[in-house]
Design a protein around this nucleic acid. Structure first.
Lengths: 156, 156
DNA sequence: TATTGTTATACTCTATAACTATA
DNA sequence: TATAGTTATAGAGTATAACAATA
């Protein structure tokens, strides 16, 4: 079990034994920094993170109602409505009234919206791939394992 | 444009052997989700991420000029100026003209601003600590190692 | 009456362009 | 002339409150 620590540790390599607080701080900073760096990679500069998040949600999870989108992005319904309006004007998604419940609207990606998601995603993944290429195999394995754990944490 | 690989990440886990693309996608999603979850934890609900980022920068790296802050946060100088104005009105930082170059202003945290940083940071770390507690030791070790690698990637 | 979406209103954050003060 | 900061202006994203349409 006692695998030697990835000795690439540059400056600080304290015994990680029970130092939860240190680990938490370290992971927080690392997560924020990497997320920020990744976010800078985008297909359309004029598209905000919030806009892209909506398109990405529709891409991954299929059509949503307005309320579902708002809840998923944890913003208010009016705020989401505004964002959806904008994306609709840009031609990235469509609104169609729900057949069974006329109060609802089904929001779905257009082909153009889908291509924005695909292209932006590819840019970010491409940046990440290049970064991963520069790592040693055991570091990549560490990151792959970490990704699974992190997703589990975020969903808790 | 070459045809993109079928990035339709299917639900089942593929062999991670040399699948850089898959690892990249996975790490991207995990990083964004965890960052988003962490960002929701804050000491003052009315404080935006951008505002907090400025305070955090001053806390970690000491006083900055306006231009330095704008560059560090990758926003325009007028945008940073506005944010700094607001934070100054709230009493979280101070502006003082530079002695040697009167065009510059030195922006520094007040005690109150520092406490906002400390408290928000503590909330986020606390959330993370609880999440880490629910993991197995080897998972925590993986995350600790991953944090170091991720920071290195973000700084590349 | 409850739910879903939308509009009204207001505030923050963002940008570019133009301006002031200093080097 | 160049640089640092600020102001002017405009657009996008956020929220709460109020409203309309539908269930």
């Amino acid at each position: 079990m006692s695998t030697p620590p990835p000795t690439t540790a540059s400056t600080t390599a304290p015994p990680p034994a029970a130092d939860l607080a240190h680990d938490a701080t370290d992971l927080r900073m690392a997560t924020f920094r990497l997320a920020r760096r990744l976010r800078a990679e985008r297909a359309i500069d004029s598209m905000s993170d919030g806009q892209f998040a909506v398109l990405a949600n529709l891409h991954v999870h299929g059509p949503h109602t307005l309320g579902e989108l708002a809840e998923r992005e944890r913003v208010s319904a009016p705020s989401m409505n505004r964002t959806v309006n904008h994306l609709e004007e840009l031609g990235y998604l469509t609104r169609t009234p729900d057949d069974t419940d006329r109060r609802k609207v089904n929001i779905a990606l257009t082909d153009e919206g889908r291509s924005v998601v695909v292209e932006t995603t590819r840019r970010r993944d491409s940046w990440l791939e290049h970064a991963l290429e520069d790592l040693e195999p055991h570091q990549r394995e560490t990151l792959a394992a970490a990704a699974t754990i992190m997703r589990g944490m975020a969903d808790r």
